[in-house]
Nucleic acid binder design. Structure first.
Lengths: 186, 186
DNA sequence: ATGGTTTTCGTACAATGTGTTCGGCAACGG
DNA sequence: CCGTTGCCGAACACATTGTACGAAAACCAT
């Protein structure tokens, strides 16, 4: 790709991220983005269809990256394999977040966290889907999709609580809390 | 209050609710609201500071009403009192939602559910706060606010799952699921 | 280096939405 | 019944969006 395009794209995405940590998504104008990115108006629209399109691309890049990394690192078939496997998927995700890869923490702690939580949730769904089945001995009589929803929801809620509280716990402690609280279904 | 004011206010709130079940909050314009409410532009701004103000008032009315009703109906000190108390707070809330009081279900199933979930969550926080403490024998070693957050989060997630799935369960069944899944901390 | 291609810039533009103002008219309540 | 209050409708300034176009700059390959 043309070096100019790379620079422009990076500048826009960076400016957008920075603004998102400062104010709500809906209060951010295209003008502010291109001002901070030091880019012309027409240039912005040459790269992104609209502000919503920019958001979508940002999210796909960010969350796509994090789940791929999680998928690669954990080759175990189950969510919490008590075999010789190194860690749970969740613990790995938490460690990845801890490194603040790609500014995800900034976005999740900003005013527009709901927007990113939706993407986060969907990414997790792809990662977790089908893994909660067959554990029926514990989650007896509970609808399968309810359990899946509950696991994902609890994890997301916990991450948000963790971030908004200043990240006072290590990924390992957090993972322990999650395991304790999710025990009846996993 | 002047009869005219009552009518106008009701017309605006009603039109707003109806629109919210059809499209996302951010795509709704003031023009659409006043068209459907059959009200002049100046009149709208005489009643509400802005579109966001309208949203806020709507939410306070809706969720304030529902938690008050829950507070009144359940006089027990605990969340799940196994004494002679009729029901848990959660079961009562679910029954209240089932009746679709004030169109809350419509708003929570619409595109802008996140907005209303924030209010829902805050209302629950006021209802649940401090009730999870002292149950430490089960939730050993878990931070107190983490447990509270988890309880509220799980409930909200469940309600959303319930609604978006077409409400295929009765409040009592749902309450049973919730109790099963939240057991380790309550 | 040179030359053709691609990207960016600056500015201008129409279109849409916001929030305010005002005088005239209609409805209200005592 | 009359003074008060709320509503209407039209107009207004303002902000934001998304598009268009020619000139200038940066790029890549030869």
């Amino acid at each position: 790709m043309d070096r100019r395009q790379q620079k422009t794209r990076a500048a826009i995405l960076g400016a957008f991220c920075a603004l998102l940590t400062e104010k709500s998504y809906h209060r951010i104008t295209v003008q502010e983005i291109i001002d901070r990115a030091n880019v012309g108006r027409a240039t912005f629209y040459a790269h992104f269809e609209t502000k919503d399109g920019l958001l979508k691309e940002l999210c796909e890049e960010l969350f796509g990256h994090i789940v791929e990394s999680a998928k690669d690192a954990v080759h175990t078939p189950g969510l919490y394999s008590n075999a010789s496997a190194p860690q749970s998927v969740f613990c790995h995700l938490l460690q990845h977040l801890q490194k603040n890869d790609g500014n995800i923490l900034g976005l999740l702690s900003g005013e527009s966290s709901e927007i990113f939580l939706r993407y986060f949730r969907e990414s997790l769904r792809g990662l977790v889907h089908g893994q909660v089945t067959g554990k029926g001995h514990k989650a007896a009589c509970l609808p399968e999709d309810f359990v899946e929803n509950h696991v994902i929801g609890s994890f997301v809620e916990m991450v948000l609580w963790w971030i908004k509280g200043g990240r006072k716990y290590s990924p390992e402690e957090l993972d322990r809390c999650f395991l304790a609280v999710i025990a009846p279904v996993l």
